[in-house]
Amino acid sequence: MTNPYSNACDEALLDRYLDGDLSADEKARMEAHLEGCRQCRRQVAAIAAFSQDLRDRVQQATDSVDFMALEKQVLNKALRQRRSRGGLSTFIGSLKYTIPAAATAGLLLFFAYSNYMPKTAPVPSAIINSFTGSMSSVMIFETPETRQTILWYNEDTNTESEQDAV
């Protein structure tokens, strides 16, 4: 630990020294400590050298990049993005008016049809079947809405037949 007041090593303070975060007084004391402490000196030198190597390494990598080509790529992609967004927003924008217009037209057609179309009377449209028996007659016919069945009963019952049945 490099405490400038006690002249002992203080790792945290050494860290702040590396960041240039010490007051003038703290810095002077730290430098005095470093003169007499080989271990701290080596640590400062190692970190400083590493930082410099890192900066050189990044600079080397930066020099290897064609930034004009990179810029061109970015601009082209941005332009494409803008165009596709423009197309999509135009389509969405057109939907904003088309959908309500279509819905309104649909509603108008519906009301016009239900109000102005002539209503058909529920008359029979076809007789499906009919037969006449001794006691009753049956007629089945259709209207546009339903299928109806009508029964007629013969009131003059045949007594002989009834007696035969008993």
Partner: peptide, 24 residues
């Protein structure tokens, strides 16, 4: 942006992609 990306990723190609992604 490239230097920060490279400092973190340590890869030239990927850092260029990151630069593009950041700007877009």
């Amino acid at each position: 942006i490239f230097s920060i990306a490279f400092g973190i990723t340590l890869n030239v190609e990927e850092s260029q992609d990151i630069v593009q992604e950041v700007f877009l």
